[in-house]
């Protein structure tokens, strides 16, 4: 069971909101890079987020660049999962490849600051603040296996190949 606070963002949060291209020079210095997580969406985010918290987006979360640094800095900030109405394709794959769960559900009813409980195995979100219960869709098997192994690199190390 994952527990934490919701940080709510709107529709169309791009990889430039999450980690702007102008910080590309810090990409080999991850602790410094991570200080800028979500900076162009909420400049105070990195100071407020606590381990276990959730990023809650609207539609098309993570659109834009293929930079895996985007889910990476979110993971480094301690975020335990991303919830969104829909997620851009490359970002989705990148997050799972890093072992960061991405849950597709109707996030309209979740407000900023709500306390959430997420049960990954059952596929449910419980918003303790509002009392609302949500369910999220299942991942395709290959993605679920990658997530369960903690990411793509450990998955390939274990199996040596993709298992469909």
């Amino acid at each position: 069971m994952l527990k934490g606070k919701a940080f709510k963002f709107g529709d169309g949060i791009s990889t430039d909101h999450i980690i702007p291209g102008r910080y590309a020079y810090l990409r080999s210095n991850l602790p410094e890079l991570a200080k800028h997580v979500m900076e162009d969406a909420d400049p105070d985010f990195s100071g407020k987020v606590n381990k276990g918290d959730f990023i809650v987006g609207g539609s098309n979360f993570g659109l834009g660049s293929s930079r895996e640094h985007a889910p990476l800095v979110i993971k480094m900030a301690g975020v335990s999962a991303i919830l969104a109405k829909s997620v851009a394709r490359i970002f989705f794959r990148n997050a799972i490849n890093l072992g960061l769960p991405v849950l597709i559900c109707d996030t309209d009813g979740i407000a900023d600051g709500d306390e959430l409980e997420v049960d990954l195995a059952k596929g449910t979100v419980y918003d303790k603040t509002s009392g609302q219960k949500l369910t999220f869709g299942k991942l395709p098997k290959v993605m679920l296996d990658i997530l369960n192994k903690g990411g793509l690199v450990p998955y390939i190390q274990k199996y040596g190949d993709f298992i469909l």
Binding site: P71, N94, L152, V153
Partner: peptide
Amino acid sequence: TGMGSSDVAVVFALGKTWFR
């Protein structure tokens, strides 16, 4: 198509990847 660094690293190593 574009992918992230982990996916591409695995294609570097295996010469293949999965697609939907």
